[in-house]
């Protein structure tokens, strides 16, 4: 078995998503321990020229499939492409971002290779020549250390979990290789994505946000979420919600944080009017800093929070927004 590491880049609207750089950077680190190459795979439409960028994030070699049929997500075609690359370059590990696409694509590849799948890993290390991955389960209530028993190991890496990648001015001397003779038949591409509708007013997905301002039943109604929107804007963050707020129809489903919603790990999570039930905590407990604003000093969220203010959110939140705006204005 080879020592190469394949990293499957993610491309949307003809651009590399930032998770691509994270996994290539991690692939490079692993390749340095195994003594193999970090090989990036980039599949999309009109991407050949941009692909060289991946060299700055650590790819020794960049495999490109530039095909208009890959303008949108095409799971069957991507699976075949990754399998073909794996066949040629004999990797010990195939890395995907644990994004929506990566989580859909990596199981398909693992199933076809009959290989172990390590999902949503937060840390990877090579110990005595073998890959050992750390990943949360039960929405973060426990941590698992897992080893693949069959190779290549298929791994998805949780966005932002393994630290920020560093772009180097110099490319890793990477060679861009066109993946050509794949002979993908149209008939193999049964699943078609035909369009994308951006969610109203959302800048950043919760799983990728560095700052989240979340609201719960304490907000009292959907109209009051504008005070959280204002705070999020002052902080450059995104708004999330508890299930109670979602089930009451105050916020869309994709805003839900928790065991049956999203698992998030921002640098700053501000929970406003959220009591901190076990299912909510499961989705946000790995946030680096947690601020709780709640009028009930006994609310369980204070047991988890780094900093808390006991008080009425309708007083505290607007004041916080106001003070932050003052600081921002002073900086300009």
């Amino acid at each position: 078995m080879g020592q190469n590491i394949l990293a499957i880049a993610e491309i949307r609207d003809g651009e590399f998503r930032s998770v691509s750089y994270e996994i290539i950077y991690q692939a490079r680190k692993l390749a340095e321990s195994t003594g193999g190459e970090a090989i990036a795979v980039a599949v999309g439409s009109g991407i050949t020229e941009k692909a060289a960028e991946l060299g700055h994030w650590g790819a020794h070699r960049i495999l490109v499939l530039d095909d208009p049929r890959f303008e949108q997500y095409a799971p069957e075609g991507l699976t075949e492409t990754v399998l073909a690359a794996a066949k040629t370059y004999d990797p010990s590990t195939i890395l995907f971002p644990a994004s929506r696409r990566g989580k859909d694509l990596s199981p398909r590849v693992a199933a076809r290779l009959q290989s172990g799948l390590l999902v949503d890993c937060t840390d990877l290390e090579i110990s005595e020549g073998h890959l050992v991955a750390t990943r949360p389960a039960y929405a973060g209530k426990v941590l698992l250390k897992i080893r693949p028993k069959t190779l290549p190991a298929v791994v998805s890496l949780r966005p932002k979990a393994a630290g920020k990648p560093v772009r180097s001015e110099e490319s890793a001397g990477s060679e861009v290789v066109a993946l050509s003779d794949l002979n993908l038949e149209d008939a193999q591409l049964k699943t078609q994505i035909t369009g994308f509708e951006a969610a109203a007013g959302k800048k950043l997905d919760l799983t990728e946000a560095d700052t989240i301002v979340a609201g719960g039943r304490g907000l009292k109604g959907p109209e009051n979420f504008n005070i959280l929107e204002d705070l999020a804007e002052a902080l450059g963050g995104t708004v999330g919600a508890s299930r109670a707020a979602v089930d009451l129809g105050w916020r869309p489903h994709e805003d839900q944080v928790g065991q049956t919603g999203k698992t998030v790990n921002p640098g700053l999570y501000i929970a406003c009017g959220i009591s901190g039930q076990i299912q909510h905590i499961a989705g946000m407990r790995t946030s680096r800093n947690i601020v709780a604003i709640n009028k009930d000093a006994e609310a369980p969220i204070f047991g988890l929070a780094t900093y808390g203010i006991v008080g009425d959110l309708f007083d505290v939140v607007p004041r916080l927004t106001e003070e932050l705006r003052k600081i921002k204005d002073a900086e300009h």
């Binding site: 290989s115 250390k145 897992i146 028993k149 780094t306 008080g311 009425d312 505290v316």
Partner: peptide, 27 residues
Amino acid sequence: SSLEIVEMSFPPDRPPGKIVGEGADAV
């Protein structure tokens, strides 16, 4: 099985937090 679970553990406890104050004056 294609995987071996080497260890299951609890995530480290978060360091105890602090209440910085009450109401808007704590901002």
